[in-house]
Amino acid sequence: MKLAAAAYQMDFLETWDAYVAKLTAWVEDAAGQGADLLVFPEYGSMELATLAGRATSGDLEASLHAVAERIPAVDALHAELAKKHGVHILAASAPVFDDAIGPRPVNRARFFGPSGAMGHQDKQIMTRFEREDWDVVGGGPLHLFETALGRIGVLICYDSEYPLLARAMSEADLILVPSCTEAEHGYHRVRIGAMARALEQQCVTVMSSTVGDCDWSFAVDTNCGMGGVFGPPDTGFPASGVLAQGRLNQPGWTIAELDLDAVARVRKDGVVLNRTHWDEQAGRDGPAVLRSLS
């Protein structure tokens, strides 16, 4: 299979048709390169707030509602494109108001299959900005999606930095990591998290990033990152664990080819067996015994 990770530049959109044309072009580009799975980044949907004008897009609370109102139409468009091109698409995550969760929005990534069917994954752990300034909250439980490409999980940005979340989806062959980070420090935190999760669970992680400046938004004003596809640095994978990576802050797709059998082989007979030996940590999750050498 071919995996496509986006380094996505958000734009100020004058019309809904401009968004349709943009997304269609991105999907057609990746599908034209033979991609079977397309991964868009965290909060890449915030550009939809510009459809309500600069005053709305620059207001933290108003932008949440402006984007959320557009998501049903956005989802219909993604479903149509996934079906037309016969691909799987992880749409850029978006703030969504869900009465089943509460009055505040969750950060939700929606996942589309080539039939047009949709599932979703909510972010679990909020960053300081989401908690303290934006009041975006943690959402529903983790999901594992059974697909023709294998079992796929999603860890949104900061979630990828927590090993127990990845462990909860240890049956995943692929873990998708959509991200939105403003500085290179943040990009590397998420990248290191994605690579660590690939090491621990002996799977492949696909990281997508927002890139570029958005002077129309306080929430996503500065973005730094690139696409990347990572595996365990073990038999059948590159020594670095990096299957493919883009160029920092350069918009476009990063494409990697993957033989999914490599995941099964390394889990069964790798040089090391991190995933199998995980449970040997049981009982060792308390604090280390403090000893004095003075």
Rank of each mutant, 00 (worst) to 15 (best):
L3S: 06
L3Q: 12
A5Q: 07
Q9M: 06
M10T: 07
D11E: 15
D11W: 14
A21S: 14
E28D: 13
A31L: 04
A31Y: 00
Q33M: 11
F40L: 15
P41I: 11
G44F: 06
E47S: 09
G53V: 08
A55Y: 10
A62M: 05
S63N: 10
P72N: 12
D75T: 09
H85V: 12
G86L: 10
V87G: 02
A92C: 09
V96P: 00
R104T: 14
A109M: 05
P114C: 03
R128D: 08
L142P: 01
L142I: 13
L144N: 01
F145L: 03
E146F: 02
L155E: 02
R167E: 14
P178C: 07
C180Q: 15
R189C: 13
G193P: 00
A194E: 01
M195I: 01
R197H: 04
L199T: 08
S209K: 02
T210P: 01
V211L: 14
C214L: 09
D215Q: 07
W216K: 05
M226R: 15
G228P: 04
Q245C: 07
R247Y: 04
R247M: 04
N249S: 14
G252R: 11
W253G: 01
T254C: 04
T254I: 04
E257M: 06
D261R: 07
D269E: 15
G270T: 10
T276I: 08
A282H: 15
D285I: 06
V289T: 14
